[in-house]
């Protein structure tokens, strides 16, 4: 059954959208990742205009992160002070990102930009995940403990130091704002939550205790993706709520099933599998970018 999407202005198979939402939701439930970095390119392959795919994904990520954020909040797993700084940075990053996004859309470069950005990110994430899971597999076999993260000394020299009671830290407020800024930029430009960057950054750069990392990251993602959605809607009119609704419905169901399934399965093999999937998506994007196009012209109606 085909459904006409009012903002994307294309007709897409309804069942395929639900399956897409469910499948990506399943993976994100299993691995605890947001899934935006997979969903956006898959939507583009489906024929959704890239500008609409990116903006609508921001809206979907709000939905898929909100229940997790609330659960962590109830459990006290959110460092509110750190979270607020991350959100503050995220808001500025999002504002800048939406401006750049609009300029690229008006000049007709947004499609290529989104593809190139995804190739870079997916290759990096997929490559790192693959190395990480291979190393974990080897270490489990040889029984070694993973190496401890090194303390970064440069960040201790930054000014504006403040106390973070929930994390038990006393450090500069600049790094969290900067990290939040980068994540906000990515949310607007690529339609990702940014958890895959924020979580490692919180552990290795901010040195936050692991029990508040995921909650605080989700807290930031909910606010920044919500803010980005409003901004994209206001400035670029590229948020398709019907598309978002279908992806959300598929996504929440898939995520619940994925979370249950993930508890029964060995982590490293799965992680390696996800890494290969991510690299595969990047490879398809590269192919599309370098392949000589059948039609040398593209066109759009300026708004």
């Amino acid at each position: 059954m085909e459904i006409y999407l009012p903002i994307a202005e294309v007709s897409v198979n309804l069942l395929w959208l639900l399956l897409l939402g469910g499948g990506v939701g399943f993976l994100s439930g299993m691995f605890g990742v947001g899934g935006g970095f997979l969903m956006t390119p898959l939507l583009i392959f489906t024929g959704i205009p890239p500008a609409v795919a990116v903006s609508t994904e921001a809206n979907q990520i709000t939905a898929s992160s909100v229940s997790g954020a609330l659960a962590h909040l109830r459990r006290g797993g959110v460092d509110m002070k750190m979270g607020s700084l991350l959100v503050t940075g995220g808001v500025f990053g999002s504002v800048l990102g939406v401006q750049i996004f609009g300029a690229l859309k008006d000049s007709g470069q947004i499609d290529v930009f989104v593809s190139v950005a995804y190739v870079v990110f997916l290759s990096a994430i997929g490559g790192l995940m693959l190395m990480e899971s291979l190393r974990a597999m080897r270490q489990r076999d040889s029984g070694q403990a993973p190496p401890r993260p090194q303390r970064t000394r440069i960040l201790d020299a930054l000014p504006l130091k403040t106390k973070f009671p929930r994390s038990g830290l006393y450090e500069s407020a600049i790094p969290p704002v900067a990290i939040g800024f980068l994540v906000g930029l990515l949310a607007a430009l690529m339609g990702v939550g940014g958890g895959f960057i924020m979580v490692p950054a919180m552990i290795y750069i901010l040195r936050m205790p692991t029990n508040v990392v995921v909650g605080t990251s989700l807290f930031q993602i909910v606010f920044v993706t919500a803010f980005t959605t409003v901004l994209q809607a206001a400035q670029n009119q590229t948020v398709d709520v019907l598309l978002a609704a279908l992806l959300i419905v598929g996504g929440v169901i898939g995520a619940q099933l994925g979370a249950r399934f993930g508890q029964k399965i060995k982590g490293e093999q799965l992680r390696a599998g996800l890494a290969i999937l991510v690299l595969l998506v990047a490879a398809v994007l590269v192919f599309e970018l370098v392949r000589t196009p059948g039609e040398m012209f593209t066109m759009m109606s300026p708004t």
């Binding site: 709000t62 809607a233 400035q235 948020v239």
Partner: peptide, 29 residues
């Protein structure tokens, strides 16, 4: 959807967010 998105874009954005929050939270419940 189309006319609200173009005529009242900010309202549209807030509605999209409210909808996402309700859906995400409700499904988890």
């Amino acid at each position: 959807i189309h006319s609200i998105a173009h005529d009242r874009p900010i309202l549209y954005g807030f509605a999209a967010v409210c909808f996402a929050v309700v859906m995400g939270w409700g499904a988890a419940q």
